[in-house]
Design a protein around this nucleic acid. Sequence first.
DNA 1: GCAACAGATGTGAGCGCTAACACGTACCGG
DNA 2: CCGGTACGTGTTAGCGCTCACATCTGTTGC
Lengths: 346, 346
Amino acid sequence: MAEDGGARSGRPLRPNTLPTMADVALLAGVSHQTVSRVLNGHPSVSAATRERVLAAVKELDYRRNLAARALVTRRSRLLGVISYDTTLYGPASTLHGIQRAARRAGYFVSVASLKALDRATISDAFDRLAEQGVEGLVVIAPVHEALRALATVTERVPMVVVEGGAVRGLSSVSVDQVAGARLATRHLLDQGVSSVVHVAGPRDWPEAEARMSGWRRELALAGCAAPTPLRGDWSPASGYAAGRRLAAADPSVEAVFVANDQMALGVLWALHEAGVRVPADVLVVGFDDVPEAAYYVPPLTTVRQDFATVGQRSIELLLHHIGDRPSEPPAVVVQPELVVRRSSLR
Amino acid sequence: MAEDGGARSGRPLRPNTLPTMADVALLAGVSHQTVSRVLNGHPSVSAATRERVLAAVKELDYRRNLAARALVTRRSRLLGVISYDTTLYGPASTLHGIQRAARRAGYFVSVASLKALDRATISDAFDRLAEQGVEGLVVIAPVHEALRALATVTERVPMVVVEGGAVRGLSSVSVDQVAGARLATRHLLDQGVSSVVHVAGPRDWPEAEARMSGWRRELALAGCAAPTPLRGDWSPASGYAAGRRLAAADPSVEAVFVANDQMALGVLWALHEAGVRVPADVLVVGFDDVPEAAYYVPPLTTVRQDFATVGQRSIELLLHHIGDRPSEPPAVVVQPELVVRRSSLR
DNA sequence: GCAACAGATGTGAGCGCTAACACGTACCGG
DNA sequence: CCGGTACGTGTTAGCGCTCACATCTGTTGC
């Protein structure tokens, strides 16, 4: 065991350079090809040779040069991810799921985290990933514009779109936003309210649109007219603004379905500030189930999205594409789940 | 302009293969070396030739093969990041800062996001990054154990540690946790309370220890005895548990300094549930300034850590190391900032 | 008018690895 | 006892690129 990190016992061919297969081969008294075979788990290597090679690898602290490997195999073992603002809980969790699934499958992940979603930015991100030789692409593209930009990328790289709504020809993974919104709205109606107000996400976001349409559908089913939704931008600040308008304008509001938890937090605070009690006076439901939602004041009823599963499924789908399986399920839909807490219980 | 993505006009040497420099060279009527020069911005290329080459590049939709480039230059232009749970706000923001700074400097980033911080996991992550040929490493290592594991990695890869406290020989970037904690404690004392209780983070986290010692120091300066701190694990749930104990045990508690915002959220809810009013009965201060903190009930006074700057500085420091500048500042300290909101104002 | 030079371009080698094939040696049946 | 068939191992070529150097212009100085 080479526990003394200071003294390298092997004599590399050239100093000041990382050891190569040739160095290992020399030390083990075999050819570099045999070293390669050992490292790649090729069957036809005798146990004794394998031992000797592994010992040499350990002694030299040798590690393969993946660039050289990629060059000759024409496979980078790299997957690319294009994502919007990985600081947010949703994308961050999805990305985490992607990373884990990719690693399990023996792939690396290269991430391009964008601040904007215009065509130039996306195309630049794509170029960077293409140069790295990514074998496939996951696009966490929550905005219509991004998908339009992507459509102009006429590359032959397998691609999976996450949370972008349906796109012609592209396979996608997403949470059933409409179903989630209906769950939330239905739940509020079940509490006996006569209607439900909606604080929506920004236009141009398919997720926001889908949640809105689910809310509309469920209200229609219950025979309620849908009031004009308020618009936010996902931020707590915008939720706060919406909450203030709600509290000021209309004392008849009985229930609010907010398009995400962060905005719901803003709404809760605005209502609290205005002396409106939740849930006694108004019921509130959010969307996402961020880890903090259970400790909001009051604990927030919300729709849980399993981002980890979304990430995992997107990699599974992508790997199928890379494997050239001809016809795969073009779309994977993950079902959301209503998590009931006090904010919606009378 | 090749606006029609469907028709590739160039005739690659081999079909079914991405175009290479040779293909571009052929089309432009120059040598592959000239293509290389154009792409690398080498000065001695005539304007006319450059134009022709760029046109060929565009027509073939050519992109460099970075693996081949890395092989010959012996530079991967890749930086590695080892981080703990990139789902959390702090690491996610830091990572984002790192990515941006790295990209600006022309580097790619490969991330190993760990779920555990034992030696085996860290060493595995290190192996994966080393195989990729990372030129430097940023370790977001919030736990003593990780640093110990890292110390056994006897590699010659430049390394910067983020938020790990001081480590012998390793340069580091961190927020001045002690100063932040003192700011928070001082502020509470300034409100006229006679003492401050602390809900601390887990043992083995240097950040938690530093915040605790800052709190101790400031209390000592004010001549107060420091009560035994409560321990949490950073989660809202653990904050809630601490809050309940606080509310139940001691009606004399006037102020609480909580080691992070998530736990503070749990504390706030526990106090609310117990009928303890914040800030009327008890003052609360958190740490981090997550985006939601301004909308907690009540809005939370907290200590802002500029994670983006931390990420950026860590890359700057790392690049200095890679550039073989002999003696760089071994440690960069970013100053935190107190953000006063209602939870701490009588 | 020719050496000296600078700028623009081409040529060859080789980075570290894997794929394909060639080459042993041992063991089998006829 | 020889051809076949394993199996283990070595040899060679080449992935796509950049580096060092060679070459080939055209321009300048004396």
